[in-house]
Design a protein around this nucleic acid. Structure first.
Lengths: 133, 133
DNA sequence: CAGCATCCATATTGATACTG
DNA sequence: CAGTATCAATATGGATGCTG
């Protein structure tokens, strides 16, 4: 067994395996956990948002990155894009059912991390003290 | 409310907030979800591993990236590094209790993604057909 | 074995300007 | 408003060579 193909999370022989180099699920994982993917899904979990609303809510994204992120998530079927042919244009972004499930897991991870941050900070101090010595 | 500070996952006013630009938890999230962080935690979830074992199991990591990833995770208190002063040297990596909790959430996310991949693939085809038209 | 230091190609990202 | 296009800055990643 060269890669982490077997023994993964739920199933011993999943049809798709994130741990394998060429698996499509690996790219999806990257879209989801990427720098802006996680924040974008997190923001949309709270409700439908328009492009510029999203931009304001996700602290630090550039127009380009948000656009790119949204395209990737839409392509993966996690985000729904609803463009109304009005003038001025109005585009609403929301989560698909699958996107919602994924966002939930993501939030579980995030909240786990947030509540563990005191421990993380303490570990960092110990590490830095030890290394600088 | 300019950022995603409020209304986050579990608590309305978390002490640490991943969504805020300068929050330390954001960097931890990046270590955890980063390209190699997720795979590394996933691998260690299955048991203690030595450096080169880890390198073989995480398909595609370079020595440098694995080293870097391991340092970041160790500093954050998620991974434990146990170096025995033997010759040849032997270093065992394992998860701390916090690391284990985080890895669990990560695996939940991953397995959610893996079981949704059929849907993802279908969405991709629809998207590509639509866009190329 | 377990790594660190260095160099370099390339991928990501961010500003800026422009369009429908 | 909702983006796309382009260019420059930067970060990332990998190959190589060396050490304890």
């Amino acid at each position: 067994m060269a890669t982490l193909s077997a023994g993964t999370a739920s199933s011993p022989h999943p049809a798709f395996d994130v741990f394998a180099r060429g698996c499509p699920s690996r790219s999806t994982l990257e879209h989801v956990t990427g720098r802006w993917g996680a924040l974008t899904l997190g923001a949309l979990y709270e409700g439908t948002l328009r492009f510029n609303e999203l931009r304001r809510r996700v602290d630090g994204v550039s127009e380009k990155m948000l656009s790119q992120t949204l395209h990737a998530l839409e392509r993966d079927g996690l985000v729904l894009r609803d463009a109304r042919p009005t003038n001025p244009p109005r585009v609403d972004y929301s989560l698909t059912p699958l996107g919602r499930k994924v966002a939930e897991r993501l939030r579980a991870l995030i909240s786990c991390l947030e509540s563990g941050m005191d421990e993380v900070m303490a570990a960092r101090e110990r590490y830095d003290a030890r290394e600088s010595a």
